[in-house]
Every structure is written in structure tokens, then in C-alpha cells.
Design a protein around this nucleic acid. Structure first.
Length: 713
DNA sequence: GTAGGGTTAG
């Protein structure tokens, strides 16, 4: 509707009044009406000033206030109330102080509403002390004054202060309680949030929609399905109108608790589905691995935003569908949307999983030139990516310049160092972290103990394992026992490892038995290996590695008949050895080598290089460890098979294609065999190359005839 | 006429 001509004053006032209603406000229309008023009244000025602040154009409110003063209209307390609100939205303390000064010139400041608005303004502008002074100076305070002062402290995470004020309140209403609940949610103290909600209900304060939305968010994080259901039930019982906020909170709660049927019911019952609701339900399906359902919803929806894409991409990454993740990312890129920190983190995690250094570096470059400020999530994801892609030095560099390192950032750095066999540096970082006053958690201890196990630090391992319990009260989980079994076993204390398994309060899982079996292979302990394999086969009857390890142990210890028998069993069960596969990336292109495979287009060239490698290795005194090959074939053939292991092919290709100063990075799907390990040490020396191999459990840095793992892996 | 609320990441 366009306003033309003069309008009767009473009509404009009523129009403005209705326009001030937050649900039907249409600012441009309201302004058009306002501008048609010849001499606006005090009330009309107030209405339009409030409308501007409600519509997120607080600067306009301040401008209108100035105009009002110029026109000679005297502002009243209401004017100032709306102005204080506008100033808090402008986030300009200067503006706020000026308006506050103007207010004091006209009024003595005893008006409780105006004072409350001032408390709110100073709180929003981050000047808590001023807010507190105003609060303390009030002769009369109402429940809103108290609630806002509580909110002041809560907003900046000073929950002790907030709580002590809350306890002193003469009376509390639903907003006071919700303020506490929402603040605990914001600082991730979800148990406290739930506790306050329960206390509120038992104090006979009836929760309203906002209180329920707040507590539902806590339920989502805590997977508190029962309380979540109670809230939902309460909504129907009390006939509380379902708002969009509430519906989304319910969908999210059900989705996070894994009850997708209930989530879907709420979603389907929504009249007009807001984007946030779509995002919440899609994320739920992604998290449960139901990517097909998520994908079909994704296709059905109209508008999508970054959150939608982020949920889908993260879903793909966490289900190891890395290709789909990158495909969707390119769709997003071409649609003109720019990735935010959330998406960069998910993509970096994909790169870390894939060992995709090239793409990881591209993302790093993107972060550096992008205007978005990298946060602790991005920093940690970068550290993790570099560590898992073999560049531990780069990982350290990124870590060192990170400003606010939290416990996870430290943990990722420590586990990166562990992965690269630098146990000493990992433990140094652990000490530094504690000096910074950061409390380690369970995951940190997994990293610390695995650092000990990857570097053979038995004493240190015991020390930290004990401290974890005695100082930090962390009950050892199966992962911690796994690290300890690994540490003891690999260091040759097989009996102690076995004893630890027997004394654990938890049932040993496949990781524990697998680790023990691996250690038995190193020390060729047949008896214990058989015990471990027997337990393992109950848990993972189809796993090829169990048979292979035991088979190798039989071979190495000359138990040929047992070996033959085992092979028969394998064949009988239809179990085949997973083929060794190594990849190397050259100029962004992934080259894949499978043991014995001749399909690479440059195979002849590679073959020539491999022969040269074999000759020079022999000259350097390398004796192939043919006991690693378990086939009934002659010695020369065994040597050939060893020499066609995928990592050797990939390295040959790397030497051919990469400049002398560029480290050769190889990714392998299995563990490096002993023969390859000693061969690669020599290759690194003979060709004077740095070779980095990421195998299934760790990194090996080969340099000058040595490996960073100290032959302990 | 002043106060509290929903979706994504390491």
C-alpha cells in the first residue's frame, strides 16, 4: 500500500501502533506513514524509533532521535528506553554514553524501566561494571532488573557471579530461570542447564516456549531423550502453541538422540518448514549414516544454505565417502557460495583421512587469503591434516602460531607427534599443556600413551597411566588399556601385556588382541600368538590379517605343517589376503600401485628403476628377508615377490618423477614389512632422498639410512 | 514500555 495525500492524525497513530507490533512490522511502510505526518507527536516519534530498532536498523533510531530534538520535540523516558536498546544494537559505547548523558540532563534517572534498559545497554556493550553500578544504585529493583543483572554476568560466562545474584533474588520468574538455563547451555555446561530446568519446574514455575527451547538444546547435547520426551509431552498436555523455534528444537533433540522417527514426525507436522528445520533433520540422518535419506531430503528442499551443505559434506566425510564430499563441495563452489570455517574443517578432515596433502595445502592457502578469521577448530584441523599427511614440521608451525589452544588442539598435536614416532616431543608438549593450565581428558591420554607405545617408552607409559587415575581421576577406558598392551607387547614384555589383559576390568576387544598378536609376530612367540589369534577369530572371523600374522609366525619359526594347515583353513573360509596398495601423489595426480600389478602406463620405466634399485641394494649388502614370503616357491621367486611390494614400486616412481630435494611421500594400506623397511632405509641413503611412508598405524621418515621409528613399529 | 530461545566443524 502506498500512502498518498494527507491522512487523518488518529488514523496515522493507529497505523503506527499496529506497525509497531513486532509480527507485522513493515519498516518502509511505517516510515512512509510517519513522513506523511505534519507534526509528529511525542508518541509517534517513539513508535517509529522503536520500529527501527526492532527491524535491525538501530542507526536509523538514533538519527530519528536527533531529528526529533532538532524539531523541538522533547523526548520522554520511553524515548530513552528505545534509544538505549538501539544503542546496544549499534555496539557503539560512545553513542550509548552520549544518549545516557542526554537522559540525565532531562531526568533524575529514578525511572525503573529506563534504568533497566540502561543495565541492558551497558551489558550488551560489554561494560559490566557500569551496569552493576546502576543496578547497585537503584532504590527499587524489580524482577527484570535482577534478571538482567544476572544475564549480564551469564553472558560473559561468569556463572559464579550470575548464580550468586540469582540466589539473592527476592523473586524469580520464568525469564530469570531461562536466563540461567540458556547461559549454561552456551558455555556447554549442559548438566547444570538441565538441573536448573528441573529446579524451576519443582519451584512451580511453569516453563514457557523459550524455557523449553533452551532446555531441549541441553537435552540434545546430553542425549537426554527422556527429559526431551517429557518436554514434548508437556507441550501437548498444556496446549502450548508449537512455534517454529520449538519445533526445530524438538527435531534437533530427537535427531541427536537418534530417534529419527520422532524427529520426522515433528518435521512432517510443521506447516511451513523453515530452512533450519530441514538442516536439523538432514543432519540427524547424516549422523546416523543414513546418507540416502539425507540426500533425498537435500534434493527435495528449496533453499539451501552453508549449514545444509556442511551437514551433508560432514556426513560424507564421516562415512568415508570422501569423493562424494568433494563432489558436493565443488557443487557448492560453482553455486557461488563460499566455504566457511565449518566447511573448511570438514574438508580438512577428509584430506587428513585420505592423506590428500595437495588438497589440504590448497585449503590452507584458501584460509590464508580468505577474509574469514581462522578459529581454533580450523587451526586444529590444519594441524591434524598436516600431521596425518606426513608434514609434522608444518603441523608444528601451524600449532605454534595458534592463539587460543584448547585441550583438543593440544591433543591433536600430541597424537600427531606420536604418529610420527617423536614420543619425547609428544611428552614435552603434554607437560607444556599442563603448564598452561589445561586439563587433559581421556582423549589426551590416549594420545600420550600411544606416544609412549610408538616410541617404546615403557616407564613413562606406566607413569602417565598411573597419573591419569591418581591426579586427574580419569577411569582408564579400553583405549587406554589398548595403548598399554601395545606398549608392553612391542617392547617385548609379552607376559606383562598378557597379564594386563587378564586383569583389565573390561572385556578385551579386537584391538587389544590384535595388538598382542602383532607383538607376538615381532618376537615370534608362537604360543601366545595362537591364544591371541583364537580370541581374535571369535570377534572377527573374516579378518585376513589375523591369519596372515599367525601364518608368518609359523613360517618364521619353521612350523611348516601348522602353516600349511592354516592356509588350508583360510582357503576353506574363503579368506584372501588384502592386496598391498601404495599411492603417491605427483602434481596433484594420485598414482596407485598394487603389489605385482603391471598396469601403470609407465610400468617399463618403473621396472628399469626397480632393477637398478635391486642391484644397488644387493651391492650395499641388503639381504632380502624371504621368511616374510609365505608361499611354496623357490628363493628367487620369493625375492621377486618381495621386490614387487607396492611401496617399492611407488618409491621407484617417486625417484623418477620428483626433484632431488622433494621428499617422497607414500601412503600404504597395510603395515610396512620388515624387508621393505630395511630396503627403504638403504634406498634413502643410496639415492640421498627423504622418504616418508604412512602405513596403517604410523609414519616412517627415512633419511640417511635411518628410520624415525627406530625400527620399532 | 525493559529481560531469556532453534541448525553445521577439530
Amino acid at each position: 500500500m502506498i500512502i498518498s495525500g494527507a491522512v487523518h492524525p488518529s488514523i496515522t497513530t493507529n497505523l503506527l501502533k499496529s506497525l509497531a507490533d513486532p509480527d507485522i512490522v513493515d519498516l518502509s511502510y511505517a516510515l512512509a506513514v510517519f513522513r506523511r505526518i505534519p507534526r509528529p507527536s511525542n508518541f509517534q516519534w517513539n513508535t517509529i524509533i522503536r520500529a527501527c530498532s526492532r527491524n535491525q536498523v538501530p542507526q536509523e533510531s538514533v538519527a530519528l532521535y536527533r531529528e526529533m530534538c532538532r524539531e523541538g520535540v522533547t523526548p520522554d523516558v520511553y524515548t530513552f528506553q528505545f534509544l538505549f536498546k538501539a544503542c546496544s544494537q549499534c555496539s557503539s559505547i560512545r553513542e550509548g554514553q552520549t544518549v545516557h548523558g542526554n537522559f540525565l540532563k532531562l531526568f533524575d534517572g529514578s525511572d525503573i524501566f529506563a534504568r533497566n534498559s540502561l543495565i541492558h545497554m551497558y551489558s550488551e556493550l560489554g561494560h559490566i561494571e557500569v551496569a552493576r553500578r546502576i543496578f547497585d544504585g537503584m532504590d527499587q529493583k524489580n524482577v527484570v532488573s535482577w534478571t538482567m543483572m544476572v544475564g549480564c554476568y551469564a553472558k560473559i560466562g561468569c556463572m559464579d557471579e550470575a548464580r550468586s545474584l540469582f540466589d539473592q533474588m527476592p523473586e524469580r520468574n520464568v525469564v530469570s530461570w531461562t536466563s540461567m538455563i540458556a547461559s549454561y547451555v552456551q558455555i556447554h555446561q549442559f548438566e547444570e542447564a538441565v538441573g536448573f530446568f528441573k529446579k524451576m519446574v519443582s519451584s512451580n514455575i511453569k516453563p514457557d516456549v523459550v524455557a523449553m527451547v533452551s532446555v531441549l538444546s541441553a537435552c540434545s547435547h546430553l542425549r537426554e531423550l527422556d527429559l526431551g520426551k517429557w518436554v514434548h509431552h508437556f507441550v501437548s498436555k498444556e496446549r502450548i502453541g508449537m512455534t517454529r523455534h520449538l519445533a526445530v528444537a524438538l527435531i534437533d533433540m530427537y535427531a541427536k538422540c537418534g530417534d529419527m522417527d520422532a524427529a520426522r514426525q515433528v518435521f512432517d507436522s510443521m506447516g511451513s518448514k523453515v530452512l533450519v528445520a530441514w538442516n536439523a533433520i538432514i543432519d540427524g540422518y547424516c549422523k546416523l549414516g543414513k546418507l540416502d535419506v539425507a540426500c533425498s531430503l537435500f534434493d527435495q528442499m528449496g533453499d539451501r544454505d552453508l549449514v545444509t551443505f556442511n551437514s551433508m559434506i560432514t556426513g560424507y566425510v564421516q562415512n568415508s565417502s570422501f569423493k562424494d564430499a568433494f563432489l558436493l563441495f565443488s557443487e557448492l563452489w560453482h553455486s557461488g557460495l563460499k566455504p566457511d570455517n565449518f566447511m573448511i574443517v570438514s574438508l580438512l578432515s577428509a584430506c587428513a583421512n585420505l592423506g590428500a596433502l595437495y588438497q589440504g595445502k590448497m585449503l590452507h592457502a584458501y584460509i590464508e587469503q580468505s577474509s574469514a578469521e581462522p578459529d581454533v577448530f580450523v587451526g586444529t584441523a590444519l594441524v591434524d591434516m598436516y600431521a596425518k599427511c606426513g608434514l609434522i614440521g608444518e603441523a608444528k608451525q601451524v600449532f605454534n602460531i595458534m592463539p587460543n589452544k584448547d585441550v583438543l588442539a593440544w591433543t591433536v598435536m600430541i597424537s600427531g607427534l606420536a604418529l610420527h614416532g617423536d614420543g619425547k616431543s609428544a611428552l614435552d608438549h603434554f607437560l607444556l599443556m599442563r603448564e598452561e593450565g589445561i586439563r587433559p581428558n581421556r582423549v589426551t591420554y590416549v594420545a600420550v600413551l600411544s606416544a609412549c607405545s610408538h616410541s617404546g617408552l615403557v616407564e613413562e607409559g606406566y607413569f602417565h597411566f598411573n597419573e591419569m587415575v591418581s591426579i586427574f581421576n580419569i577411569e582408564p577406558q579400553i583405549e587406554h588399556y589398548g595403548c598399554m598392551v601395545d606398549l608392553l607387547g612391542r617392547s617385548g614384555y609379552l607376559k606383562d601385556a598378557e597379564r594386563l589383559i587378564q586383569s583389565m576390568p573390561v572385556e578385551p576387544n579386537a584391538v587389544i588382541w590384535g595388538s598382542l598378536l602383532g607383538s607376538c609376530r615381532v618376537y615370534n612367540d608362537v604360543e601366545l600368538a595362537e591364544k591371541a589369534a583364537k580370541n581374535l577369530l571369535v570377534l572377527e572371523p573374516q579378518k585376513d590379517a589375523i591369519y596372515i600374522l599367525l601364518y608368518n609366525i609359523y613360517n618364521s619359526t619353521g612350523r611348516w605343517s601348522s602353516a600349511v594347515e592354516l592356509r588350508g583353513m583360510m582357503e576353506g573360509c574363503g579368506i584372501r589376503k588384502l592386496a598391498g596398495c601404495s599411492t603417491i601423489v605427483i602434481e596433484g595426480i594420485v598414482h596407485e600401485f598394487i603389489a605385482g600389478d603391471r598396469s601403470h602406463p609407465q610400468f617399463d620405466e618403473i621396472q628399469t628403476m626397480m632393477s637398478a634399485m635391486a642391484t644397488r641394494l644387493k651391492l650395499a649388502g641388503h639381504v632380502p628377508r624371504i621368511s616374510q614370503v609365505s608361499l611354496d616357491i623357490d628363493e628367487e621367486e620369493k625375492e621377486n615377490i618381495l621386490f614387487n611390494h607396492s611401496e617399492k614400486m611407488a618409491i621407484a616412481f617417486g625417484i623418477l618423477k620428483l626433484g632431488k630435494n622433494i621428499p617422497i611421500h607414500i601412503l600404504k594400506n597395510l603395515r610396512v614389512c620388515r624387508d621393505c623397511h630395511s630396503a627403504i632405509k638403504l634406498i634413502a641413503k643410496i639415492w640421498n632422498r627423504e622418504i616418508v611412508v604412512r602405513d596403517r598405524s604410523r609414519f616412517h621418515h627415512f633419511r640417511q639410512g635411518q628410520c624415525s621409528c627406530g625400527d620399532f613399529w
